[in-house]
């Protein structure tokens, strides 16, 4: 196994774990937010967990799109350049 396939496999594992962590964070967030206790800080933490989990899921889902957009824009920018001026 070369380095590239190792990194690829690692990425796949990270993506799987990230989705699992998203579910966990989203659940934990709602759990904390919905707890019937009079501690606003804990409820606020639950809210933060939910927001972070949603943002993370957004970027996780957009990963392929982000890289495709980057590839698209950079390949469009690299048009042939004009000849340099002759001194």
């Amino acid at each position: 196994m070369d380095v590239v396939s190792f990194v690829q496999q690692l990425t796949v594992k990270i993506i799987t774990i990230a989705w699992a962590v998203f579910l966990l964070a989203w659940s934990a967030g709602w759990l904390l937010k919905g707890t019937p206790i009079p501690f606003p800080r804990i409820k606020r933490t639950g809210q933060d967990f939910i927001e972070d989990a949603v943002w993370a899921a957004f970027w996780l889902a957009m990963g392929g799109t982000v890289f495709a957009l980057i590839a698209y824009f950079t390949s469009n920018v690299s048009l042939p350049m004009p000849q340099p001026p002759n001194p």
Partner: peptide
């Protein structure tokens, strides 16, 4: 790609 998804994983950590 690994860096990007590691970022999302850390972002999601509860």
């Amino acid at each position: 790609v690994l860096t990007y998804y590691t970022g999302t994983l850390i972002y999601a950590l509860p």
